[in-house]
Design a protein around this nucleic acid. Sequence first.
DNA 1: GTCTATACATTGATAGAC
DNA 2: GTCTATCAATGTATAGAC
Lengths: 215, 215
Amino acid sequence: MTRNKPANKARANSTQKPTRIQREKTGAILEAALEVFSRHGFRGATLDMIAQKARLSKPNLLYYFASKEALHAELISGLMVKWLEPLEKISAEGDPVAEITGYIVRKLELAEEFPRESRLFANEIIQEAPRGKDTLNGHLKALMDKKVVLIQDWIDDGKIAPVDPYHLIFSIWATTQHYSDFDTQIKAMMNEGYEDRFSTAKTYLINLFTKGLRL
Amino acid sequence: MTRNKPANKARANSTQKPTRIQREKTGAILEAALEVFSRHGFRGATLDMIAQKARLSKPNLLYYFASKEALHAELISGLMVKWLEPLEKISAEGDPVAEITGYIVRKLELAEEFPRESRLFANEIIQEAPRGKDTLNGHLKALMDKKVVLIQDWIDDGKIAPVDPYHLIFSIWATTQHYSDFDTQIKAMMNEGYEDRFSTAKTYLINLFTKGLRL
DNA sequence: GTCTATACATTGATAGAC
DNA sequence: GTCTATCAATGTATAGAC
């Protein structure tokens, strides 16, 4: 009896669904892949580095993921929900300024807790996202459109200052993700202040955007 | 008589200094290298791609630059001055808010005119700058320290709102460079507005930071 | 399921003819 | 100065034993 070569994921002996050991292995691989891809980008990363970090052989890694591309795609799509969540949560119900500052805080927390995920996406975008393009921008664009309308409504209702919704969102992305994507530089620039960078950044950014949104 | 293998640059037949043709070739190579390195990062870039874009053979390219590393180093150091210039120009003499908005405008113009240069540095930093680290951060850090003191002086003199100078500079870097580094995403998110993105961003950012700095 | 061995392509760099 | 040929190293992926 021959064994099926799975498309994206390994399958158990014959009929079972993913076993505990498989989850552990794929988990270790994805963790290692995140580490390596987020630092070196797709082309710069090698399966050797990933396999070594995940503590298995390269062929064994390729038993769980059909190819380098497949592994990368799995990473991206697996992180998509977490990545979009902060923007998703902006609600039409709450106070506009509070909603937007809440968004800033969530984005900043994400940058602090998941810097590798942030760099993974940053690498993709800088390098023109030859892969994640559709996945990333498709989902994101739909969400973006909705939130732009919401912000424009707030402006039209005179609830916040008349700012360009696109640039508002871009500037929030830029300022928050900067602390994960360019952490190397932040570290090189700040001295003692580095340890508290997220705390002080939070204060600074909330103040900046609050002033910018008040009428 | 043997020919010397130059360290970083090619040397003419025997005694001359760089000729016109050499300048043209090295120029074409650096231009191509900027294109490729800025998109793929150091590891992701290949000499093949660069040679092809520069319209010469790989060995010929390596006649002008000793190695991939040397070529990359030459690029980085050659762009350093241009890259630091906007920050350099912040003057203690002018009006504080005008000086800072002037800085924002200069940075944004740089992002518009030289997006590849911006991405080149962005790639280096995201990937922990195993190379440019000393060069980039050395020069930048010295400049940063001076400007942080200047901004702090303005605050102490009650000329601008008491904001953290580090985060002020970081947020200016982030918001301006975002338009070059993540242009792919900007393009995917904006519709008709994309063409005017730098003009509308300028208005938006000046407004944002002006409000943030006014007492 | 996992490993060793290996096939096959890419890549950085050099040798040597012209 | 430039090209063809070529290397050694690296890198993705597969074959097949266990």
